[in-house]
Nucleic acid binder design. Structure first.
Lengths: 262, 262
DNA sequence: TCAATGCAAATGTCCGGACAATCGGACTAC
DNA sequence: GTAGTCCGATTGTCCGGACATTTGCATTGA
């Protein structure tokens, strides 16, 4: 035994990334790890990297791309965080057996409907400023009786009422133009106003419709309704929105995917 | 202008981590970054690090602890991922203005109730093996008509029915002992069987109770019910569980916090 | 007085290397 | 034949440094 190892039998399953046309543009301002992670994600999405396939070790991948291992690891890690990849020490990195698509974002009903091709419509029923009730004040962290925005909207899909949305917002954050509210979603307006959403506390429940609710949504009185209350915070911890929504359960349900943080 | 800068005025707000008794044990098998992140998290939880306070720069923090900057960054990053900290380039790292507690795990009803001090009780009504219906087969990825486990449970809190849980599982994964099912939760049993949960697809809705459902939960017929369907996958992508649950909305609602991934 | 410029501070990105821990299979010994 | 052992492969952890980018503030200039 003096050299020439007889043969670590060549692995039957080849590294699928070799056939992939991976490359990074060092002159781009986009971070290298991000370029790589996007290309890998696209390959997974496109099916070029098949579920269950091994990714080939980080060292060699780094060498082939002319990157350092930490950079490659950062790219891979971001996809692991998204639930697209799984790492196993001593084994390798595998593409997760699909099923994972959207790991639950802070969803906007408007965006959800639009993504589903439902062409949402909004009717702004109320858009005013009034003193905060105790519950609203507590949720938004403003003094009770202090002025807040209140908007009430009816959201329709295919001409049918789908949800009744009541929202309260602190003053001074946003210019709440009714026309804009009907043309887009509240979250989109907040984001374009420079508010960086950070987290939200949600509560989902059900109850029987009151006469007024039934009337608004076109349901019989006493019909089951799906309810959601949400307080949204920006990255400074300020509450920027408090919503109290009711949905027609025959037309809408909450669908989401969640990941187990390891 | 040749040297001696007149004086960068000392910052009025001192770095709150200096008063913190941070230290790492290099002989421990616990990773250094993890030791640090745990101590920081405890300090935030305990209120020693107050919301909004700056954390002091990474370089100096690393030097004080005798760690490298990448290690300190890894610790901080894990807390940023949890939503406890916010980084701003050119500014520093701040403790988020609280509100964030649980960023939504793949929750087990049993664990939730126990954590809320409700002392949950479970009554196993059905625990059998039968051919999979079309819906169950599709959810679990097994052939239609192939055998699967089916368990039906009634979950009570304070002696009152709270939820009716129907679950289907593929054969051979788990030893489904009824006694154990009543003493603990299904998820806990799966975890201790070596199954690493990875993700789940959930759907939450509402509907009126049928006569049978109303009977089981002690509600009048036609009462609104909260429903949840969930398929859970392990890290190989296998579906390991399909659940169809109905909850009494007067006794239970889904509460969770979610983070916006930046 | 107010706007433009420059500077310091802090995080973001990237590198190259080193060693440890774990997994799985091959080999060996019984 | 079977169980235990060893070993290669791969990811996990950690280091020390370098430069880029952004932010906020102070200074400067009009």
């Amino acid at each position: 035994m003096h050299g020439a190892t007889l043969g670590p039998v060549p692995k039957p399953d080849v590294d699928p990334t070799v056939s992939l046309d991976l490359r990074v543009d060092r002159s781009s301002p986009v971070p290298l790890y991000f370029q790589l992670s996007q290309q890998l994600e696209a390959a997974i999405e496109h099916g070029t990297l098949t579920p269950g396939s091994l990714l080939g070790n980080e060292i060699e991948l780094a060498a082939r791309l002319g990157l350092s291992r930490p950079t490659v690891r950062q790219a891979i890690q971001s996809l692991v965080d998204k639930g697209l990849l799984v790492r196993r020490r001593g084994v390798g990195t595998q593409v997760v057996h699909s099923q994972v698509k959207r790991p639950l974002e802070l969803s906007s009903l408007y965006d959800d409907l639009e993504a589903a091709g439902q062409r949402p419509a909004t009717r702004v029923l109320v858009n005013t400023v009034l003193p905060a009730s105790a519950g609203v004040a507590a949720a938004l962290g403003v003094p009770e009786g202090g002025d807040v925005h209140r908007i009430e909207r009816l959201r329709l899909a295919h001409g049918e009422p789908m949800a009744y949305l009541v929202n309260h917002l602190p003053l001074g954050l946003l210019d709440l133009d009714s026309g804009q509210l009907e043309a887009t979603g509240l979250y989109r307006m907040m984001r374009s106003a420079g508010i960086t959403l950070h987290s939200a506390r949600q509560s989902i429940g059900a109850r029987a419709a009151t006469a007024a609710e039934a009337e608004r949504l076109g349901e019989p009185e006493g019909a089951p309704l799906l309810t959601m209350q949400r307080t949204t915070y920006d990255d400074t911890g300020r509450a920027v929105e408090f919503g109290d929504h009711t949905y027609r359960p025959t037309r809408y349900s909450f669908e989401f995917q969640l990941l187990v943080r390891p």
